[in-house]
């Protein structure tokens, strides 16, 4: 099924996850500013006052996309249609082209406000696909689902990548590829990160995430969004671009916010990786045509 709400507006290049302490930087002239912003609708919908004024001002300068936290796609609780209606209205008000969510659940019998892992089973695929279809029908846009970082795996009858791909194929949804999460999970659950990324269909990847993580031990990484991106994840981003082409990429930094110059360097690094990937592709095409 093709979804189009009539307000399709593409984003490209480098994005930044919006946090309130960053607003002053984003409103001031900077050497490097992101080309678009990603925000959590649950932190902005229905807010007046300073938040509303900030959002209006930012929306005049930056395209905005939504990255949800509370939809709880795998939850046994009923799908929150009131939240979805509010998101639909919000997307229309700010001409927002993308809404993404996590392939996880965040509670049963009420919210726990965190991302909990789902069992990788056929039953779960069916459950999640039904809910994603309901979301897409209500919003009339394809949902992009994110591969989450996880620190435990429940009894399953397939691998994580097979589960993820099953959901994507059966629901027709898009992918938000979180490169850091692939890396974190490849350490926590010992699989080949490159193999995971290669298995994804390029044409379904709508955009990407990159972030820092915390090394709890040699075998346990936690996706904190609280540190700089490590070189292994930068390498994996380069690999992702080589595999799937350059996609819009959001830097997520939620905690231990550094000074703007430091964040800026990471935004510039994403842009450089994108440029390198485009140049490599053009050189390869040039070599072929010679």
């Amino acid at each position: 099924m093709v979804y189009d709400n009539g307000t399709t507006k593409n984003v490209s290049g480098v994005g930044l996850g919006l946090r309130r302490p960053l607003i002053d930087y984003l409103n001031a002239p900077q050497i490097m500013t992101p080309q678009f912003l990603e925000l959590a609708p649950e932190n902005w919908i229905g807010l007046g006052g300073q938040s509303e004024a900030d959002l209006h001002r930012l929306a005049e300068s930056y395209p905005i996309i939504l990255h949800g936290l509370s939809l709880s796609l795998g939850s046994p609780d009923p799908l929150d249609r009131r939240l979805l209606s509010a998101i639909k209205h919000f997307m229309s008000a700010y001409t927002i082209p993308i809404y993404s969510e996590h392939l996880s659940f965040s509670g049963a019998n009420g919210h726990l406000y965190d991302l909990l892992p789902l069992p990788f089973t056929q039953t779960m695929v069916k459950q999640v696909v039904g809910r994603i279809n309901a979301v897409q029908e209500l919003l009339n846009v394809p949902l992009a689902i994110e591969n989450i970082a996880s620190y435990a795996q429940s009894p399953s009858d397939m691998t994580e990548i097979d589960f993820f791909m099953s959901v994507v194929e059966k629901s027709g949804c898009e992918i938000l590829l979180d490169v850091n999460n692939v890396y974190v999970n490849s350490i926590n659950h010992q699989f080949d990160a490159r193999k995971y990324i290669s298995a994804l269909p390029s044409n379904r990847i709508r955009y990407m995430h990159i972030a820092g993580h915390y090394k709890e031990s040699e075998s346990l990484l936690i996706d904190t969004h609280g540190t700089a991106v490590c070189h292994e994840v930068w390498d994996l981003l380069a690999f992702s671009y080589a595999c799937h082409g350059v996609k819009p990429t959001v830097l997520e930094r939620d905690f231990n916010l550094p000074v703007w110059d430091e964040l800026s360097r990471e935004l510039i690094s994403i842009a450089e990786h994108q440029e390198d990937a485009i140049n490599s592709l053009m050189n390869a095409n040039g070599a072929r045509s010679e």
Partner: peptide
């Protein structure tokens, strides 16, 4: 594949995780 299981009650499992997180 992490665990070979055939008859996991997924919904019950999700409730078990949530219960354990709560208490």
């Amino acid at each position: 594949m992490v665990h070979a299981v055939s008859d996991v009650d997924d919904v019950r499992h999700l409730h078990d995780i949530a219960r354990s997180m709560r208490d």
